[in-house]
Design a protein around this nucleic acid. Structure first.
Lengths: 200, 200, 200, 200
DNA sequence: TATGAATGAGTATTCATTCAT
DNA sequence: TATGAATGAATACTCATTCAT
């Protein structure tokens, strides 16, 4: 390290990585013991920091949970529409998104569990819940495009959407619990069930 | 107090109604604040009894939660196969059960929420979880009958089952959250999506 | 205990005496270590109860301090005008009150120390402070009677009042610190200084 | 960094001004929130330095408080006997000192508050308390000269002293709390009350 | 049984102090 | 020296559980 960098390194900045560690530790703990069972002390030691340090990064348990919730929401939003291109034929685009939903649920399972758990917890504020609901909006749009193009059934959008998502969620949840391996083959089967249900 | 009344007092069962009150109070609280947020004190006052009294009916919080979980499981099991008759044609019988699942989720929403919440909580023992999984067995049988009769797709039973249940769960959950009214019409739409997905 | 009293004794009431014990313990601790140095744990064990019990009687440390402050104020108010009769000649009545002030400061020294200490503490609310100020009103009236009767100097009432009280407070405070015995003789001397200062 | 600058850095004294800032910040905080309510963090940020820096100037909170206490004592001692000349007639000299006491209490109010507050706090050592008491010695001498000259009453010196000081302290304290303006006129009135009380 | 006050272990949070930069 | 993040012991407060009535 040269003189120049020393000048700027004088003040130790709040470690960005530490927030990440804390989040990771919290998600793991929640997956294992549920929101009901986690303490700030446990989170701290799982993140390999002192309890006091935890409070440098988050003013309270409440704030930590809410921040993590927001983080998870952001992560899911980023994945949902990855590689989606509205100019693609409907079914192709639909499958991209459907697979993304599946991807999020499987690869970020702890986040999904955490979000589900939090929804009824006293930690999450109404505002946070509200924003979360709004996040579903683009999915509504997708479903409505399908209806407009007469490719999928002309049913209530809410029904179509929850149907589209429900199978994925239930499948992933139970496969994690029961140890059932999630294979390409199974995913394909689930997609077909879903698509056959939706198509006009 | 004489011998007679003593004897009588011993025989007198714990007030059945009170257990019910306690369960109802707990379910309501869990729906509103999650398992993370309930205390024995709150349960007691919601059930309009003293904390001490709560401990006459349940040795510990753990026991209360587990007893309630078992109760909920029993309630769901009773509903799932109500009016089902294996001699009915497959689709008819399938719809009976599918509607029963829907019925349970809507009319006993707090129970469903409670069971979901508990699954990750430190309160529920592994044994309890195991028994719960076994409860799904008859549903497997149903699905397999459908496959055997070549009426529904020859996909993995696990996939078929989670697909069948997922839409219902997701639909009811979000309708409760968003205040969306659950109508016969919507239920019918959801069933059609589900059936069209499953059918061979 | 007969049947009748049993009927009413069924519920153990919040022990009135316990509040008193808590107050006494707190005052003693504050006298010895100052408001800065007391913890809820210490108060509890000085009052021979569990920490949790302390919180049955007072929702928080703040509330405990404020309640005690109010209690002390009440105690002082009760003493200040004890045996005072406006129909007595001014000097006689004045001396009754002056001696009462002295009596409070000496016999309830911990309360006086506590009140002094609290005045600058973050525990005491502005409202509480305001009420305390108002408590001085009757003393103003007394001083104004003396002025009206041309018995004491026609100076600013605020000056007369703080002068009247200041000597007492300073005397008692330092005598407690230095271990100087407060005798009848010394009190008489102090009263004479005070009276000679005030008289017209 | 070369040898020269290293040497120079070692010699460079701790910034004198910074100590002053720290003291000023502490006094202000204690006036507003009491000794009970101040933290090292608050002091540091009020003094516009980092917490770590505070510990360069003072090894501990204890030491800071004690150093400030000593500083305050010194400041008061310097003022008390300012312009006093034993060769002046008693009353003239007495008034000089009396006015000095008044001056200290008004112009260095925070210091007075701080010293009062500290007296009961766990921070101040017995030694410090002892030295403080000794500081009163010259005032005793003054009072005894008055008695010897038969100008003031032949009462107990302790009584005379606390009487002399009490009115001042009480007056200033309450005027600060209530916002009452301290005027020359009021000071004169207070002095007269005091003198008339003391004179033989 | 029923009550709710009492208990004390446990949890969230603060804060004096240290330390790497 | 100066900084402010990191530490962990101490403290305020909670809550499952017990117990006297």
């Amino acid at each position: 390290m040269n003189n120049y960098s020393l000048k700027f390194a004088k003040v130790k900045p709040k470690d960005e990585k530490k927030t990440e560690h804390i989040f990771k530790a919290t998600l793991q703990l929640v997956k294992d013991k549920g929101v009901a069972g986690i303490t700030m002390g446990e989170i701290a030691s799982a993140a390999k920091i002192a309890t006091g340090t935890l409070y440098i990064y988050f003013k309270s348990k409440d704030e930590l949970i809410n921040a993590l919730f927001t983080e998870c929401r952001k992560a899911s939003a980023e994945i949902y529409f990855k590689d989606y291109d509205a100019s693609l034929p409907f079914k192709t685009g639909f499958k991209v998104i459907w697979l993304n939903l599946m991807k999020f649920r499987t690869e970020h399972f702890e986040k999904a569990v955490f979000m589900d758990q939090c929804y009824h917890s006293p930690f999450i504020t109404e505002t946070t819940k509200h924003i979360t609901k709004e996040m579903m909006h683009p999915l509504y749009k997708l479903v409505e495009r399908g209806k407009a193009e007469k490719i999928i059934k002309d049913a209530d959008s809410f029904i179509l959407l929850t149907f589209m998502v429900g199978g994925i969620n239930e499948f992933v949840k139970h496969s994690k619990y029961s140890g059932k391996k999630i294979t390409k083959e199974l995913i394909e089967q689930m997609f077909n069930l879903c698509w056959d249900g939706l198509k006009a």
